[in-house]
Design a binder for these strands. Structure first.
Lengths: 335, 335
DNA sequence: CTGTTAGCGCCTTCAG
DNA sequence: CTGAAGGCGCTAACAG
């Protein structure tokens, strides 16, 4: 194993340049008044001997790591990937980098990550977690000023929030109304596995009763937010309840899984079963039949979340909740 | 703005527990011999006053940050997202976290990131970059022992490599042969924008001539690896060269863009134009017509890359090049 | 404009 | 098994 080359430090540069470490520091950070001559000279030496500042040392004294943390449940879901992209672009503009924590939909990992993140390894955090219950999430974030939540509000204005205006309960209603309009009466609901699942189910039943659709509590089944889970759950539901004529999926991946399950079971979509999703990922417009879904401006949301975060990091603690409208995009799967 | 609570340090715990910082350090890190009593006691105090080790301080002295860097061109491409997931899972198992750098297909950003990453902010690096030319990439990685490249080899065995066995030139040939078999003779090639574009074009012409297909150098157009770029490029190519009867896309996103462009231009796929992609992302099987593509085990590749990285980080500098076979998945777009 | 002093929070080393 | 001393590389605060 090649011996690791000894790190080049500020002091090395100073010695080489015939100055003090402090002067070098000022040159490197472009802070304080420095004569043009020494600046040029120091820069040259630094470049020549390959000096790179140590983030760790810097962080230790400045208490800033120049990193923001992004916690997402599943980076392979284009919905979150696009949010992360929005965050990353904003961070990049400000010289920050992104510490990605992908919790893989695992609750324990989410907690662990949130706890890890406290080790002051980041200056701010953006959290997309729809599953962690408030009792767990709140203690973890209340220690920090700089937190932004996506698609979730924090009681007591502990964190800024970016979310879609109306949320999944609203979408359920809109989707239900839409599907009813085309004559469907017996439809299921396969929402994301969620900390407030019961509320979702209650809402589902309420909506059905208000709209005068048939009520089948057993047609409400929670589901992991993946294509595979959507397929399995959808298959089971369609198989055991052949009477159903529509299914509202919790997100697009789930809905696409259901779509495929329906096709595999020989159901025609939308004639036998109408299907709707949510998030309007690229896939939604491309499949056949194309998927009726709700459009949410994910990139903008990630970008805005980062902006709100930097605002907090700069000390402006004004509480802000930024809302984005969701829009039903009607396509073939539920015309 | 609420005043930031003062950080709880090792010394605080020591004072509170009536011991020395060193003892606390040993307890926290589970190192050295510590009596059971003091261990329990110190742990209790630490938990009680909410002690969290400072990563920065630790990193400064140990020279390890417990982070690995992952550099990818586009996190919204499921291909890379899945690789990152594989990396992340491995890192997580070892108590490491992932520093994500998404370069957005921007060369300058790739260089900047690679350079940033030198500030010893990570203990190892996994680099997916097919565009950065060797002359730029090599100097940046040769300073480090712990680098793994994905889909790219480093001369001089400077870094371990994980890649598909045969690469894009091979795929071009296989796809061409496949398409020819169904009677297509005039086909274009829309590869990824790439540092070795010229080699790709030469290879394209060579393959065409060897296989006895018509040669149209102008039907080889490089393209950014996005759906949108695929659409635009494909549209232009199909529009200006109506005679073409097949297009080989550089990846699935591109191919899907081409697919849509063909449809918008009123061409039947595959009858008028056959289309193939690469990577076999989820989308490929779901669109209509479904996309003929090459399957690559992305998750396994990410996971393996991380494993090779940790191996290097542990000091085992054996050069390893891990290959994965690509497999042509024949679907409707090019039967 | 430049240098000095001190210390961030932790771990390595060496003594008890 | 436990502690004291010292320093990682950098910058804040204060001098010149």
């Amino acid at each position: 194993m090649t011996p690791r080359r000894q790190r080049v430090t500020l002091t090395d540069v100073a010695r080489e340049a015939g100055g003090s470490p402090m002067t070098v520091s000022r040159v490197i950070n472009d802070t304080g008044r420095i004569s043009a001559t020494t600046r040029v000279h120091v820069r040259a030496i630094a470049a020549q001997i390959g000096y790179r500042p140590s983030r760790a040392a810097r962080a230790l004294v400045t208490k800033r790591t120049m990193m923001v943390g992004a916690i997402v449940p599943d980076i392979t879901n284009p919905y979150f990937a696009t949010i992360v992209q929005g965050i990353e672009d904003q961070a990049w503009e400000r010289g920050y980098s992104v510490w990605l924590a992908n919790t893989n939909e695992t609750l324990s990992r989410e907690e662990a990550v949130l706890s890890q993140i406290e080790e002051s390894s980041v200056d701010g955090r953006i959290v997309c977690s729809y599953r962690l219950p408030d009792e767990v999430l709140l203690p973890l974030i209340e220690k920090h000023e700089a937190v932004v939540l996506i698609n979730r509000s924090a009681p007591g204005h502990l964190a800024n929030t970016v979310r879609s205006r109306n949320g999944y309960l609203y979408r359920l209603r809109v989707a239900a109304e839409h599907v009813l309009r085309s004559g469907k009466r017996r439809f299921g609901y396969i929402p994301l596995r969620h900390s407030a699942f019961q509320a979702g189910r209650d809402h589902y039943l309420r909506v059905l009763s208000e709209l005068g659709a048939e009520e089948h509590p057993e047609w409400c089944v929670e589901c992991a937010p993946t294509w595979q889970a959507g397929y399995t759950t959808g298959y089971a539901l369609l198989d055991t309840s052949p009477a159903g004529d529509a299914i509202i999926g919790g997100n697009d991946l789930i809905a696409l899984g259901i779509l495929r399950a329906a096709q595999d079971l020989g159901r025609r979509v939308p004639d036998d079963v109408a299907i709707t999703g949510s998030d309007d990922i690229l896939l939604a417009a491309q499949v056949k039949p194309s998927l009726t879904s709700f459009r949410v401006p994910t990139y903008a949301m990630g970008s805005m979340a980062a902006q709100l975060l930097f605002r907090r990091m700069a000390g402006d603690m004004t509480y802000i909740e930024h809302l984005y409208d969701e829009e039903l995009i009607v396509r073939e799967s539920a015309p």
